[in-house]
């Protein structure tokens, strides 16, 4: 476990070193006129709680991106450790007509982020979808199961190392009893 502890420390050091602009206590950038926040997985709940108190009343979208074959992201704030999996959360503020996007570096081998269910129960299906298609674990999710693919499906097809047409169509006669 020392290895993971070390890498955790590294990440913490990196965020402490960060001296660029911040918003809600996390690094902030802008992409095509939209505010993008970059919280670490451990900061996600806190950041979203602050945003919710600030009038961001709806979680519009939760999805993930696998950056395995990407040539390298240039739009991340300096000093932030790019990870293979990124969880992207979109929130909307109805009073001010504003959107904010949170890009969370979720990890490389076992991408894990906390579930937003207790703040926005509407993320339940979207988080299940991200688990189903990317294998991102949402800790504290009330029903952490596949949503689009069958329960006995192997793999997470939207990952970049999952090729198109690799797996033949699966039939499962033993499950059906309806």
């Amino acid at each position: 476990m020392t290895e993971t502890e070390e890498s955790n420390e590294e990440v913490e050091e990196k965020t402490e070193e960060y001296s660029g602009p911040t918003s809600y206590g996390v690094p902030v950038t802008e992409s095509h006129d939209q505010v993008v926040l970059h919280p670490a997985p451990a900061q996600l709940l806190e950041t979203v709680t602050l945003l919710k108190e600030d009038g961001f009343c709806m979680a519009i979208d939760v999805t993930a991106v696998d950056y395995l074959t990407h040539p390298g992201r240039k739009d991340l704030p300096e000093g932030l450790n790019p990870e293979r999996f990124e969880v992207v959360v979109s929130l909307i503020n109805h009073d001010q007509g504003k959107r904010v996007r949170l890009r969370v570096q979720a990890g490389t081998d076992n991408p894990t982020v906390p579930s937003l269910f207790d703040l926005f129960p509407g993320t339940e299906a979207m988080e299940r979808e991200a688990w189903d298609l990317f294998g991102v674990v949402f800790e504290g999710h009330p029903d952490h199961s596949r949503i689009l693919l069958p329960d006995n499906w192997e793999g997470h097809p939207l990952r970049k190392d999952h090729e198109v047409g690799r797996i033949p169509v699966q039939f499962s006669p033993e499950v059906g009893r309806h």
Binding site: I60, D61, T63, S90, A125, E129
Partner: peptide, 27 residues
């Protein structure tokens, strides 16, 4: 109805995600 595209500079989207209103409303 939302669309999230990540581009890596190539001719195909690196990732294309559609936020389907039906999918979310079903909850």
């Amino acid at each position: 109805l939302g669309c999230y595209i990540v581009s890596d500079g190539g001719p195909n989207p690196y990732r294309m995600h559609i936020r389907g209103p039906s999918f979310v409303n079903l909850q």
